Computed example of a mutant assay.
Amino acid sequence: MNAITFTERAATLQAAYQALLETEPKLRARERAKRLDVSEAELVAAQCGVTATPLAGTAQEIFRELPTLGEVMVLSRNDWCVHERHGEYEQVDAEKGIGLVLGKDLDLRMFFSMWKSYFTVVEGERRSVQFFDGAGVAIHKVYLTEHSNIAAFDAISAKFAAPEATWPHISAYPIDETPNQPEDAAALRESWLALTDTHGFFPMLRKHKVSRLGALQAAGNDLAQAVAIDATETMLQAAAASSLAIMCFVGNRGIVQIHSGSVQKLLRTGPWYNILDPKFNLHLNTEAIASCWVVNKPTSDGWVTSLEVYAADGELIVQFFGVRKPGVPELPEWRALLESLCSTPLAK
């Protein structure tokens, strides 16, 4: 796309964007993109409501600069759940296709093959670094706070600024045609019972060519059990009341963002059930929940249980564990809490 075509396309989108703002000013960026039938990356590229600098280089190169920003608020989400965490990028491993961030506050798993376009963004007083996938959907956003290093943000903008603006190449992802039933449910169950680490679960799904939800439905109630649709609220209220430390995983195609610790302030706002703590916010659209499951996996440290929440299309919305580290057994209080959600016993 040449410069003139880019300018014309951006101007057309800006006009549509302004018209939408006049009628519905409170929409979030993701909702505005849907209303305008474009991707969020295209809204940013067209400078709709923001001043954006497109970035060149690889996502890994940019990611390795993020520790210079100091304390930030990082946001990762899917269509139904938003995960926000305050902290600093401490231990960053972003050399290969799969990356890792570890620290006392930030815990991330990045799948960089999905990261396709990147920008530094200024919206009023808010500054952020934003990463998008090939469909133009936001993977990860890094917002500066009052404690962040603005000079470092400007340095990232200058170091990686693309020589010219180009329109994001947007392409829809193919429909996932993974079967929802295993060819051999008994063989799947045998593989499940042979697990020694929770990280072996995804390779097991690939081996048996079955979707995650399909595996839960086929495994048997002692390994995966459907529970009440409001199980997440029940669990969070109990965890908050007892100061039980939990882990909360929210992911999309390009990242999984994790919170570890207790939760305190819970609040419902319309369809959204929220955790509103100083360093951790979660916003879960409970109207999107189609099913909740208690999932039970054997490991070398004993059984590990999780609460998994699914949308109507079978996509995983959010996942909860009790806080634990490899080599350490699951918290008995967490196990008891999840067992209390179940109508029949779990394997042990």
Rank of each mutant, 00 (worst) to 15 (best):
N2H: 11
N2W: 00
I4T: 13
T5G: 12
Q14H: 02
T23E: 14
L27V: 09
L27G: 07
L27K: 05
R32H: 02
R32N: 07
K34T: 13
S39I: 07
L43E: 09
V44E: 06
A45C: 11
A45K: 02
A45I: 03
T51Q: 15
T51M: 12
T51K: 14
T53W: 03
T53Y: 00
A56D: 12
T58K: 04
Q60L: 02
I62V: 14
I62H: 04
E65I: 03
V74A: 14
R77S: 14
D79V: 06
C81W: 02
G87N: 11
Y89L: 14
V92R: 03
D93E: 15
I98N: 12
L100A: 08
G103R: 08
L106T: 09
D107H: 05
D107T: 07
R109L: 07
R109S: 08
R109T: 01
M110L: 15
M110Y: 01
M110C: 14
F111R: 07
F112W: 10
Y118W: 08
F119Q: 09
V122C: 12
G124C: 08
R127M: 15
R127G: 05
A135Y: 01
A135Q: 13
K141S: 14
T145D: 10
E146Q: 13
S148V: 09
N149F: 00
I150G: 00
F153Q: 09
D154A: 12
I156R: 01
K159C: 09
F160M: 11
E164L: 13
A165E: 13
P168F: 01
P168Y: 00
H169S: 15
N180M: 10
E183F: 04
A186W: 01
E190M: 07
E190A: 14
W192H: 04
T196N: 11
T198P: 04
F201Q: 10
L205C: 10
L205E: 05
R206S: 12
K209H: 12
L216K: 01
Q225H: 02
Q225K: 01
A226N: 07
A228M: 06
I229N: 12
T234P: 04
L236C: 07
A239Q: 06
L244A: 04
A245H: 02
M247I: 06
C248D: 00
V250Y: 03
G251N: 02
G251C: 05
N252M: 06
R253H: 08
R253D: 14
I258N: 05
S262W: 00
T269Q: 13
G270T: 05
W272E: 12
N274Q: 11
N274I: 02
I275V: 15
L276V: 10
P278W: 00
N281Y: 00
N285T: 04
N285H: 05
E287I: 02
A290Q: 12
S291N: 08
C292I: 04
D301I: 03
T305W: 00
T305K: 08
E308T: 09
Y310L: 09
D313R: 06
D313W: 00
G314R: 05
G314F: 04
I317K: 08
I317F: 01
V318L: 08
Q319A: 11
F320E: 12
V323R: 13
V323P: 07
K325R: 15
G327N: 04
G327M: 02
P329E: 00
P332S: 11
E333Q: 13
C342Q: 02
S343R: 11
A347D: 10
